[in-house]
Simulated scan of single mutants.
Amino acid sequence: MSFSEDPDLQPILFGLFLSMYLVAVLGNLLIILAVTSDSHLHTPMYFFLSNLSLADIGFTSSTVPKLVVDILTHSRVISYAACLTQLSAFLFFGCMDSMLLTVMACDRFVAICHPLHYAVIMNPHSCHLLLLLSVFVSILDSQLQNFTALQVSCFKDVGIASFFCETSKFLDLSCSDTIIKNIVTYMVGVLFGFLPVSGIIFSYYKIVSVLLKIPSSAGRSKAFSTCSSHLSVVCLFYGTGIGTYRGSNPSYSPRKGMVASLMYTVVTPMLNPFIYSLRNKDISSTLKRLHFWKI
């Protein structure tokens, strides 16, 4: 499905989506460059941030290039194999985002609640192990849902009510009984969606409990400033994600669901680098030094 059938709007949509995609990719690449080039940023928090930026690039690249090409070629056709490939990549990188945000919340929890043991708990071996665990869980999530999609034997229609292949929209095309498929999908959603969110909520509950015990308001503000960027990204990621799932509600039109999906897949990865660069002095100063070095 396209965002508009009006031919006069196609060049505008092409320029808009291409610009948003390039900003998202370049912004996240700058975060990765800043973290890798500055030895002061070789800490667990920025290690996970650079991997989050890499996952954001993959997340937005799983949908937007195809959308831009479709607008340019005036074609909205996607093959069955390409649809499953896009579905798998979207689920993998989306789950990676969720897992890394959870790991970053745990990192902030250890840093604030157990500062004396932080270097021991969040050592390089633990960080790489958490990253590998995130990759493994993301692969498992994407392949389980991809396997569910592969069970679709026939279709009621060939039209997908979105600008990319989503699991729920793909399963809606099946003319066979989808009860088992829906059960599997919801179970996977609970395991790989609800549990990470619970981990983030628990981490911030503990963080807030510790911050409230700090007598100085300046001390509380300084401690919470290390979490503000991450918390902003979490709210943006899950807030737009909830909007996407609400878009599958019958009371929502397909185009409203597409706008929600656009916020989730394009706007969030595009804004993440700005949030971290504007609200993080270490990243900002490193980017400024890189700018002057290039000049």
Rank of each mutant, 00 (worst) to 15 (best):
C165T: 06
N51V: 10
V77Y: 15
T60V: 15
Y118H: 13
F292R: 10
C227I: 06
P115G: 04
L33N: 13
T185P: 00
P65W: 00
Y252H: 11
L231D: 02
D70M: 12
H125C: 05
F237K: 03
C106D: 10
G15E: 09
S221K: 12
V188R: 10
L18C: 06
P269M: 03
I207C: 01
A55M: 03
S134A: 15
G241D: 09
L91C: 09
F202Q: 05
V234E: 06
T178Y: 07
L150W: 08
S176T: 14
L133V: 12
L278S: 08
Q10L: 12
N280P: 02
R246Y: 13
Y46A: 02
I242H: 11
K206W: 00
S216Y: 06
T36G: 00
T286D: 02
L72R: 09
A111H: 01
P215I: 07
A55L: 02
L132M: 14
A223W: 01
I112P: 03
K294H: 12
S198Y: 12
S61M: 09
T36Q: 12
M20R: 00
F109W: 08
I242W: 14
V259Q: 06
V77C: 05
L116E: 15
R289K: 12
S216R: 06
R246G: 10
A161W: 01
Y186I: 08
V197I: 15
S216F: 05
T244Q: 07
D70C: 07
T178W: 04
L100F: 09
G189Q: 02
L30H: 07
K256P: 00
L211S: 10
R108S: 06
G159M: 15
S98P: 04
S174I: 09
S98Q: 02
S134C: 11
A223I: 05
R108N: 05
S126A: 15
S228V: 12
L100Y: 05
G219C: 08
I275F: 06
S221C: 11
L87F: 00
P115A: 01
C95M: 05
V120M: 14
G247L: 02
K256R: 13
I283E: 04
V110G: 06
V23I: 15
